[in-house]
Design a protein around this nucleic acid. Structure first.
Lengths: 137, 137
DNA sequence: AAAACCAATGCAATGGAAGTGCATTTATTA
DNA sequence: TAATAAATGCACTTCCATTGCATTGGTTTT
C-alpha cells in the first residue's frame, strides 16, 4: 500500500501540495472529469497549473485521457486493472447521454479488432454511449 | 444509378451549386475530411456555408460525423454499406498516426460490446489507430 | 548558510474550432 | 410579378486547449 507521495516519487514527479490535492480529487471522483471540473473544485488555483499537472500525470501514466465524443477532453486516474503503459491493455469507456458523465469500465477489455491487410493497429479507442446504471432505473 | 441531384432531392435537400460541389468534393476524397479541408478546397466559399451544408447533409444521413480522437470533427460520405440511419449499423474508423488521415472501414462492423447490468448501450464509437496501408510499406 | 539553479505556479495572451444572429441574395411559389 | 422562404455571406462570440514569460518556491551546490 503506497502513499500518494511514494507513488509520485516512484514516477519521478515532485510532490507538491497542489499535485496531492489534484490527485486526491481525481481519486475521489468515480467518473472521468474535464479540466473545468477540476478548475471548479479548486477555485484558487490557476487553470494552467491544473492543466500542466494533469498533463504531467498523463505523461507518467498516472491518469489517462478520454475522448468520449463530447468534444471536451476528460481525464481519469489509472488504477487497478488499468495499465495504460501497455498498449494492448485498453478498457472501454461509457458515456451517459442523460447525465453526461463518462466512466471507465476498467474490467471490460476491448475485443481484438480485425483490420484489413496493410493496416497496423496500435491503439483502440472505444466509447459506448447510452444510459448509465444510475439513469436507467 | 442516381444522379447527385436526384439523391439530394430524394432527401428533400434543395439542389444548389455549392451543395453539388461539396458533395462532389466529399465523393472524390476517400478519407474523412475536416471543415478546414473543405474550406481550403473552396476558397471562395464562406466557412458558415460549408459548415451548414455539411450539417444539413449530416441530418439527412448523407454524411456521417467522425470523432477520431484528434479533437477535430471529420466528415465522410455515407455510401454503399453505410446505413447511418440504422443505429446498429456502425462501421469502424481507422486513424493513421503517420499521415493523420482517417478512413472508413465500411465493411468492418463493430462487434457486439457487452456492458454491465443497468447500462443501456445506444451507440458505439470505435476508432482504431495505427499505420494505414499507404504508410506501412 | 548563502548562492545558484531548476522546477512549479500564476498571469496574460493566443489560436483554433464550433456555433449564432442578422442582413442579403437567390430560388420557389402563389 | 409579387410574396415568401431558403441559402449564403459577414461579423461576431464562445469555449477549450495551449504557450510565453515573469515569479515563486524548493533543491542542490559551494
Amino acid at each position: 500500500m503506497k502513499t500518494i507521495e511514494q507513488l509520485l516519487e516512484s514516477k519521478n514527479i515532485r510532490v507538491t501540495a497542489m499535485r496531492l490535492l489534484i490527485y486526491k480529487f481525481l481519486a475521489k471522483k468515480e467518473v472521468a472529469v474535464t479540466l473545468s471540473d477540476i478548475e471548479n473544485a479548486f477555485e484558487k488555483a490557476d487553470r494552467t497549473t491544473l492543466y500542466r499537472t494533469v498533463k504531467t500525470f498523463e505523461e507518467k501514466a498516472i491518469v489517462h485521457q478520454i475522448d468520449d465524443g463530447t468534444g471536451i477532453t476528460k481525464y481519469a486516474l489509472c488504477e487497478k486493472g488499468c495499465n495504460c503503459e501497455i498498449e494492448t491493455d485498453l478498457h472501454l469507456h461509457f458515456h451517459c447521454n442523460n447525465c453526461n458523465e463518462t466512466i471507465c469500465l476498467t474490467d471490460h477489455k476491448i475485443p481484438q479488432i480485425k483490420v484489413p491487410d496493410g493496416f497496423v493497429s496500435e491503439n483502440v479507442n472505444l466509447v459506448v454511449k447510452g444510459i448509465c446504471d444510475k439513469c436507467s432505473v
